[in-house]
Amino acid sequence: MTSRSSGAGKNKKQRSFWKELPILIGIALILALLIKTFLVQAFSIPSDSMQNTLQRGDRVLVDKLTPWFGSTPERGEVIVFHDPGGWLPEAQIEENVVQKALSFIGLMPSANEKDLIKRVIAVGGDTVECKENGKVKVNGTALDESSYLYPGNTPCGDKPFGPLKVPDGKLWVMGDHRQDSLDSRYHQNQQGGGFVPEQQVVGRAIVKAWPINRWGTLPVPDTFDQKGLSAHAAAAAPGALGLAGAVPLVLWRRRRLIAKDSVVTAGQETGKG
């Protein structure tokens, strides 16, 4: 009797597991889809434009969460963004059912996603330029790009530009393999002027996840921490200081008017009495 009942219990547990398996798979797929949509997504590097920071075939993980909290791209970050229009050729690659399913839930990059990956050089309000045989300058401050520029490349020897004022809400982006990157410099004659709208940014690439031997983070290079780069923010400082100084003056004047009105009201009341 004991043997039969324990065997029946075992079969019941096995049946319960197989009944629950589809539910577990469904939950896993939903979680994967939510992670892809709101947290992190994998992207494959399709070209050599970001060498040696990123190699063709590398897989990177992109942070999609911080933009939901109002964060905007900063200088020096490596970002993934949607094609602003006309940056990529019109090409359709056939994917099998498995590839489509995995890319849908974010476990595999889609071959047909029209996304690009570049480094942010300047943000809205900045003035950016690069003369032939010179360095890239942001707000008049030269960048030391030796830590990420592809060996043997010049900052802009193939395509000098500027000075250009980056519109608010836009970005100026460039590839690390400067002489093999059709970046902002090469799209100045298009409708967007070569600038990337912040709304087109998918997120910041934070980790090289694959292959394992190339695993590593993608930090912002030290050159982007220079104080001179924030010249446009400093220009706004006098206005902010003026506003800060005006607030106490307005409050003092308001108190004077209230006190004066109180004296007048008290005099009127006295006259009535």
Rank of each mutant, 00 (worst) to 15 (best):
G193Q: 04
E95C: 05
I121F: 10
I105Y: 06
Q51K: 13
A233W: 12
F38Y: 11
R178L: 04
N96W: 00
H187I: 01
R59G: 03
A142Y: 03
Q41C: 05
R119Q: 06
G106Q: 04
E145Q: 09
A142S: 08
G175L: 08
E74V: 11
G85Q: 06
A142I: 01
S16W: 15
Q199A: 14
E145H: 06
I45R: 01
N11V: 14
K118S: 08
T127V: 11
L102K: 01
K114R: 14
Q99S: 10
F38I: 04
V98H: 00
V80L: 04
N139H: 03
W172N: 07
S5G: 06
Q188T: 11
R59N: 09
T53M: 11
T265L: 13
S230V: 04
S103W: 03
A205P: 01
E132H: 13
T72I: 11
L107T: 03
L54F: 09
N189Y: 12
S5P: 09
L143A: 02
P167W: 11
N112G: 05
V220M: 02
W252L: 14
W172I: 02
E74S: 14
P73F: 04
R119Y: 02
K19G: 14
I79M: 07
I258Q: 11
A42I: 09
P163V: 05
S103Y: 05
K118F: 11
D63Y: 03
R56V: 04
F104D: 03
N189W: 09
T66C: 00
C156T: 04
N213I: 04
T72L: 12
D63E: 12
S103N: 07
P46M: 06
Q41D: 12
V120R: 00
G169C: 11
N189R: 13
D261F: 09
A231L: 13
S262N: 09
E269H: 08
